[in-house]
Nucleic acid binder design. Structure first.
Lengths: 209, 209
DNA sequence: ACAGTAATACCTCAATTGAGGGATTTGAAC
DNA sequence: GTTCAAATCCCTCAATTGAGGTATTACTGT
């Protein structure tokens, strides 16, 4: 049975070309094509597509919103972003919204067709440069001494970030309670914070520990 | 010029097959092959490979350690994991260690060759099921009310997690200082913690906020 | 009408923390 | 040989917090 495809793309010529190309092959069936995401929820529910091709830059609701609408309406529909944007900001917003693939518009048609098959088979097609960005995001950029913390200060901060009190930290490190407080007093200005709670928030959200 | 490849794989038959296959094509050159990662640092420095094929399950230092050794010795060398393991644990350890690709051993040889070209061109080849896992990891599994927090309690926790004091939170929400303290006292048992610092640690590390 | 929950607000007391000091020892750098 | 940073320890005082309460209002579901 043909793969049911729905297209969200505001460029009419491109949208028509894609539709024409995909319809010319028995393997694919374009069941709907739209210049924006306003009706994304209802058409997804009505047409039950296997795959949605989604542009990002569209008038009204953009494609990032669109991913969420399609995914919420019908999680089984695989969403492939199809866009010119290559920046981390939009990329990760789409991924968090539930996109199953991310292709740049420079992708040649045969690769696009292959990606549609791949996403239906449970894959996650991505343009090479996108895949590289995604993998790079896992390498925690060790903020190596961005705040010039000493070895001991880092240890204290790590334990603090587990929610431990000064007394418990002292026990863990086998040093005195007052020493821990001294370290904390030295840590705060280095992190540009004023109290332990801010320090924890900063340490955890900036992956210092 | 041929792509310089180094192979870490403890299965001798597989290692020899790969070497033989790759050497049969002028495009590729296997400059070294090893049954473990003990010498990974020194051979990477000595042989200056473009690509390292890395198994995970090897005697001695395993492949996860191996990725780190190769990447630390020579960041330009692209490392492709080549393994049977499909579990999130090992996968994300490899990605954090700096792997540039992740192929399952069931990958057919022609896809493996394509992956080597792709990684040299700055891509990040992944088996489809791996790519899907990676993308899924971005969908923050909304821990929807795992701890049964009320709307207001969630708001208080969100502000607390920015490091705000009770007094500041009261100001932000336009409620009294004592009310904030009441909410906090109700939040702690729900999160199974005993103080604000533990609450922040839990909220941030479990993505509650 | 009544029970339950969420949200609001106040009180007290002991413990912890932040802020401000000062002080010693050790090992590396110049 | 002196200087410097890191690590250790102690003191005080005011502010914040945790823990234990109590109490009112408003809305929801029965």
């Amino acid at each position: 049975m043909a793969i049911r495809i729905i297209i969200f793309e505001d460029n009419e010529r491109l949208r028509n070309s894609l539709t024409y190309l995909l319809r010319s092959m028995p393997e694919y069936d374009v069941v709907g094509d739209y210049p924006n995401c306003r009706e994304a929820t209802s058409v997804t529910l009505a047409l039950q597509p296997d795959v949605a091709l989604m542009d990002i830059d569209m008038p009204g609701e953009n494609g990032i919103k669109g991913v969420g609408m399609v995914k919420e309406a019908r999680p089984e529909t695989a969403v492939i972003m199809y866009t010119v944007f290559e920046d981390d900001e939009k990329l990760f917003q789409c991924l968090c919204a539930g996109a199953n693939g991310y292709l740049l518009k420079k992708t040649p048609p045969d690769k696009l067709f292959e990606a549609i098959r791949e996403v239906v088979d449970g894959g996650a097609p991505m343009s090479p440069s996108i895949a590289r960005r995604v993998l790079n995001s896992f390498q925690q950029s060790k903020t190596e001494n961005k705040y010039q913390l000493s070895t001991r200060e880092l240890e204290v901060l790590q334990l603090l970030s587990k929610g431990f009190s000064a007394k418990v930290i002292a026990g863990e490190l086998n040093i005195s309670f007052e020493t821990v407080r001294s370290h904390l007093k030295n840590i705060y200005p280095k992190l540009h914070v004023n109290c332990g709670k801010e320090a924890i928030a900063k340490a955890l959200s900036e992956r210092i520990v």
